[in-house]
Amino acid sequence: MTDASPLMKRSLVDQALEQLRARINQGAWEVGQRLPTEPELAAELGISRNTVREAMRVLVFAGLIEIRQGDGSYLRARADPMDSLRTLTGCSMDQVREMRHILEVEAVGLAALRRTDEDLRLMQQALDLSGQHYHGELDTYICCDLQFHQHLIDAAHNPALSELYRYTSSIVSNHLRKTLDIYPRRQSVFDLHIELLEAVKQQDPQRAMALCRTLINEP
């Protein structure tokens, strides 16, 4: 009986999760809305308060629920980020390139029009650091390269684009790692980064977008 208790408890938490996720997906609460209290949810779902508490902890970890100390629980999002990450992780290299074309190329065009002197300083600083590690350890270079591209996207001054790139950067990182494991790093590819930054400095969106397309397609 003792051995079966954890399994039974886990099953109850899973059932609670299914019910809570169903309510979230069905729009029972708006994003940002305060959720019912644990006792209220327990009564509504017909389960114990402890089971509700454990289910809520899982939803907090998944990024769907936010608990504000002394205030209650609030709906943070409808989609589970982990589900999205699992989908993204299964994308092929060609699919990742398509995603980068849609997201990065347009963002770079906006960056060329909207960049500030501070944006240019941050991009130049990141590119200089990237150049120091271009022929060095792969993971260190990728980290530096992603920082440059993040500053580039941020220069578009569109929080949605910045957050989307930040969210997908781990997928871009995996794509770069696979590509650079197969093909040697070439100076000409790094030089494209230099040309891209120069186009942004000159506020030439068409050239910046063309260079970005080339860069994404390069192995």
Rank of each mutant, 00 (worst) to 15 (best):
D145I: 02
N174C: 12
Q19K: 14
D83N: 15
P219F: 05
R185L: 04
H175P: 00
T140V: 14
L129Q: 14
S130D: 03
H101F: 08
R68T: 10
V172A: 09
M99E: 00
D181M: 07
M1W: 15
S173P: 09
K9S: 11
L180A: 04
A208W: 01
R186Y: 10
S48N: 12
D83H: 15
Y165F: 07
E44Q: 15
D14H: 13
R21M: 08
G90S: 14
H135L: 09
E18N: 09
D71K: 14
A112M: 02
R78Y: 09
G131K: 04
H157S: 10
T116D: 11
V108P: 00
A126S: 11
V172R: 01
D204Y: 03
V108S: 00
L17T: 13
A210R: 02
R100K: 08
T116R: 12
L215G: 00
N158G: 10
A62E: 13
L127C: 07
L196R: 02
L122S: 11
I24M: 10
G72W: 05
R121C: 07
Q132T: 09
L35K: 07
Y134D: 07
V200K: 02
R115S: 11
V108Y: 01
Q147K: 06
D80F: 12
Q206S: 08
E66W: 06
E104I: 03
L75G: 15
E198D: 11
R166C: 01
N217K: 03
E118V: 09
H149N: 04
R21G: 03
F148I: 02
D71M: 05
H135M: 07
T37P: 02
A62P: 06
Q26E: 14
D128N: 06
A126R: 02
Q187F: 06
E195I: 01
Y165D: 00
H151S: 01
L113H: 05
H151P: 00
R121W: 12
W29L: 11
K9C: 06
C144D: 10
K201F: 05
S130C: 05
D154W: 00
S170A: 12
Q15V: 13
S170W: 10
